[in-house]
Nucleic acid binder design. Structure first.
Length: 291
DNA sequence: CTATGGCCCTGGTTGC
DNA sequence: TGCAACCAGGGCCATA
């Protein structure tokens, strides 16, 4: 469950269980989830710290820590393909290790009530790591698609400057953050753009359409708490997302386009499964090959 | 700068 | 039924 809307939803779900609480213990049953740190080192970094705030940057959940009222580093969590963050409301569960649990934190609130935050991750691609400075750690990321930097003018200018295929460029987190395979396909469909078009050849009007498509797709998905079409990947906390019912192309191979009824096609672009309507998203002109 | 392919991992689905 | 191949919402790294 790893694109911007799912990460935003995750941050919102765990926030009330974390803010204001103090970390009393930490454990990790899969060290590589810690992103390079040893378990003891990780534990020492977070134990005794208080969670001041839970935010999101790109596809990262950022858990801000403080000690004596001063900033004291952050926990950065990336869900990658199968990661989940689950907060226990009931106390007394802290000792039990859940299936696929990779990292867990014991917490206590001001009244002495205990709880547990667990990082579960079937495929172990995700990360749950401590950093001193989250801004430095995330410095290479592009702008937020729902933030003030991401304007129509920015997108027009930035597309023009890149001689790259459109879809992989939009998936590149150093270019623009938050989009993954699903929301890229959905956004390109809404904008009427073929994923293999050259970024620098996208006309201004289409770039404007793409800007609107990205924002409206992400906003609508956040409103529905993201997508979850596989029981395996759902968040057990709260309701699973429901945006998957509104997919126009993703996972709809062979089904009729919602606009023109032509069957949706699946192709592979930059090694990623890609879904398009060949009528609504006309293929780019192929450059003439020298003979 | 851009593109490609391997790699990290596990489990569900598909096809023989 | 059994089993192998293939697929998956991400991103890093080396190489060309």
């Amino acid at each position: 469950m790893p694109e911007l809307p799912e990460v935003e939803t995750t941050a919102a779900l765990i926030r009330p269980h974390l803010e204001g609480r103090r970390i009393t213990s930490a454990r990790a049953s899969w060290v590589r989830s810690l992103g390079g740190a040893e378990v003891a080192e990780f534990s020492a970094s977070v134990k005794g710290a208080r969670v001041s705030e839970v935010t999101r940057r790109a596809k990262w959940v950022v858990i801000h820590l403080e000690r004596r009222g001063r900033p004291a580093g952050s926990l950065l969590c990336h869900l990658r393909m199968t990661g989940r963050l689950v907060a226990d409301t009931e106390s007394g569960h802290g000792a039990r290790e859940e299936p696929y649990e990779r990292v867990a934190l014991g917490l206590v609130d001001e009244a002495g009530k205990t709880s547990t935050l667990r990082f579960l991750d079937v495929r172990k691609f995700g990360r749950f790591k401590f950093v001193e400075d989250h801004e430095e750690a995330l410095a290479d990321l592009g702008p937020e698609p729902l933030g003030p930097e991401f304007t129509e003018e920015w997108l027009i200018r930035s597309l023009k400057a890149r001689r790259r295929v459109l879809k992989p460029l939009l998936l590149d987190q150093t270019f623009l953050v938050g989009l993954g395979n699903i929301y890229v396909d959905e956004s390109l469909f809404l904008a009427g753009l073929h994923p293999e078009r050259s970024a620098h050849l996208v006309p201004k009007a289409r770039a404007r359409a793409l800007h609107g498509a990205i924002q409206s797709t992400l906003r609508a998905a956040i409103e529905r708490e993201g997508s979850s079409f596989d029981a395996f990947y759902r968040t057990p906390e709260g309701q699973p997302g429901s945006y998957q019912h509104l997919f126009r192309v993703y996972g709809r191979e062979g089904k009729p386009c919602t606009v023109c009824e032509r069957p949706i096609k699946r192709l592979v672009v930059a090694q990623r499964g890609t879904h398009i309507c060949t009528r609504c998203q006309p293929a780019p002109r192929r450059p003439k090959l020298p003979r």
